[in-house]
């Protein structure tokens, strides 16, 4: 390790490139509102993914509750037609794949 015999010196020739330079900033309350609304949209449009997740949980009484709730939620979303956009996108993409 020849560097041990050298006097201490700064190592970095080029500083790391910052990923967030020039990015638009927003205050926390706006970010929280954005996260909350995006989560709600995900909950509504992604009921199939939530059901898939619940079905993959390990067997446990709490998991049964989660599965029942997710199943019920998915059924409600299906009744009002909110599962259709995601499923249409999925089947369209699968057709393209095949």
């Amino acid at each position: 390790m020849s560097y041990l015999s050298q006097p201490p010196r700064p190592l970095t020739r080029r500083p790391p490139v910052e990923s967030m330079t020039g990015a638009v900033r927003m205050p926390l309350h706006s970010v929280i509102r954005m996260v909350a609304l995006a989560s709600a949209v995900t909950l509504v449009l992604g009921s199939q993914a939530i059901l898939d997740w619940a079905l993959a949980l390990p067997v446990h009484p709490a998991s049964d509750l989660a599965v029942n709730a997710a199943d019920q939620w998915h059924a409600w979303m299906g009744q009002v037609g909110l599962t259709r956009p995601a499923e249409a996108a999925r089947s369209g993409f699968r057709q393209l794949q095949n």
């Binding site: 709600a40 995900t42 995601a86």
Partner: peptide, 14 residues
């Protein structure tokens, strides 16, 4: 925010 939520669902389904 709505576009963010919809995009997450879309990516998951694709």
């Amino acid at each position: 925010a709505a576009a963010l939520g919809a995009a997450i669902v879309l990516i998951d389904r694709l």
